[in-house]
C-alpha cells in the first residue's frame, strides 16, 4: 500500500497530475451548476420587473 502512494519516488508528480485532473473535472461541474442556478434566478428577477 505504501508503494502505491510512493509511486516509485514520483509521488509528487503522479499524484499532482491526478489531483489537478480531479480538480478540473470537479471545478467545471461546480461552475456549470452555479451558472445554471444563477441563470434561473436571473430569469426570475427579470420576469418580476415586467
Amino acid at each position: 500500500m505504501n508503494d502505491f502512494f510512493h509511486m516509485g519516488g514520483y509521488a509528487f508528480y503522479v499524484w499532482g497530475c491526478y489531483g489537478l485532473t480531479a480538480g478540473v473535472l470537479l471545478a467545471n461541474l461546480i461552475f456549470a451548476t452555479m451558472r445554471r442556478k444563477r441563470i434561473l434566478q436571473q430569469i426570475q428577477e427579470l420576469s418580476e420587473e415586467d
Binding site: 509511486m7 503522479v14 497530475c17 491526478y18
Partner: peptide
Amino acid sequence: SLLNSPADYQQGETVRIMYVH
C-alpha cells in the same frame, strides 16, 4: 491506470501521468 497497469521500464511510475495527460 492506477492499479492494474505496469510501470514503464524507462519512465517508471510517471507513465501513469500519460493516462490523464
